[in-house]
Design a protein around this nucleic acid. Structure first.
Lengths: 224, 224
DNA sequence: TGTACATCAGTGAACGCGCGTTCACTGATGTAC
DNA sequence: TGTACATCAGTGAACGCGCGTTCACTGATGTAC
């Protein structure tokens, strides 16, 4: 039995949490906390949000159902961690999009497209990110920390010409942007739109067109 | 035992499905199918979407867990029926809003506000309406029948000046309208917006302002 | 109008399942001397 | 450098629960004669 356990200086890479699937695992995992979160994401990707149970996550990580309790208070804390990672990556994508945008007037649009693209690439993850936010009826913490999507959008709005001391205009523009992006993100996959998507040469073009049509994200109304 | 059963000509109103809670029920229910749907809605209202199990619905309707199977193939068919009723009512609200709108250029805005108001008044119902739509990645059937929201919006778009034979513009405007409405509907409850809502004198005013800010729903861009 | 009988719409007990969580435990690790 | 021991991070069995669904059943209804 001890034969299957490896010494601390195992040869399976520097991060034992991501050892090769078949490789025997050490009794102490190394970084189970992180491994659980990424197991959760794998389940989301493969089986969707409804399959994301605590037991399934433990199973996927190759660990007993009780093990997660050494790292998370309960199931919801684990799910929050998964969602949090999602928001961080979404923030990263938004940041990149903003960097890419040549001028301030197209930045909001680029951000919107990046946002929706992320949601469409990780639909199950996005779903639980939002479900947890809706459950507490608040923006996710991860969306508002420094460098997060929220902050990025705030800067982009200012750069697009909204007076930053006009609190109401700032807030309304933020809200309008988020609502639009969320709406498009959740509905872009609907079959009804397949024809239009094809006619436009892909989903990316379709998303752009919807944003352009909505107006706000193109920047021209941002300074209303 | 037979004493608690009533003859067919019971005195508890014409619709036996909605008899007074305490009143003894006949063995044959009368309209269990409908009673189950409204029991489902009561559960949604009271306990939220996660509590909506088939057993809970049967319990709420005062019937054994097996009874629903005489009316619905399985759980999901029952949930579809609940969602369907939701879409019908939403369509009704949209229709009313359109009637109320004095001129074609404000109709889309009015529709948007009505849509969001419905979602906000029945958040749990709206949640499962949408969840089921997302599960099959398509607009709900109930949204597209005659007199439904979809049809109403279509007409409103035409009246607002979009050329009905320009399929792409029609479709894009439809999509933009739905995405926006959905986004606002799901996010309007977030705590972050409480301050702004209060400053504006209520949620209704807030919703209107967001739509105005987004642009599309005010009609001025509908004829792009 | 009364009776026999098929059909309808319920009952309630049971099935197997996967879930979240707890518990006493044990192997592995790291620190003090 | 070696040893004793506290602490950490796992195990695996068990708990009670509510779920969706099936089943043989039975009471109520409606129809044919």
């Amino acid at each position: 039995m001890t034969e299957t356990l490896q010494p601390p200086s195992a040869s399976n890479g520097e991060d034992p949490a991501f050892a090769a699937p078949g490789a025997p695992r050490r009794y102490h995992h190394g970084d189970l906390s992180r491994a659980l979160v990424s197991a959760g994401r794998r389940i989301l990707e493969r089986e969707g949000p409804d399959a994301l149970s605590l037991r399934a996550v433990a199973r996927e990580a190759g660990v007993s159902p009780a093990a997660p309790y050494h790292h998370f208070k309960d199931k919801s804390e684990l799910l929050e961690a998964v969602a949090h990672e999602g928001w961080e990556e979404l923030g990263e994508a938004v940041k990149e999009a903003r960097k890419r945008a040549s001028d301030a007037h197209v930045a909001l649009g680029e951000i919107g497209v990046a946002y929706v693209s992320f949601a469409r690439q990780h639909p199950a993850l996005y779903r639980i990110m939002y479900r947890m936010a809706c459950d507490r009826e608040a923006m996710p913490d991860g969306a508002k920390t420094q460098d997060s999507g929220w902050t990025q959008v705030e800067s982009a709005i200012i750069e697009a010409g909204v007076n930053p001391s006009d609190e109401r205009a700032m807030m309304l523009t933020q809200i309008a942007a988020w609502c639009t992006a969320h709406g498009v993100a959740e509905m872009a996959g609907f079959k009804e739109f397949d024809g239009l998507k094809a006619a436009m040469g892909g989903e990316q073009a379709f998303i752009r067109a919807v944003f352009r049509h909505v107006g706000i994200m193109s920047g021209q109304r941002a300074a209303s």
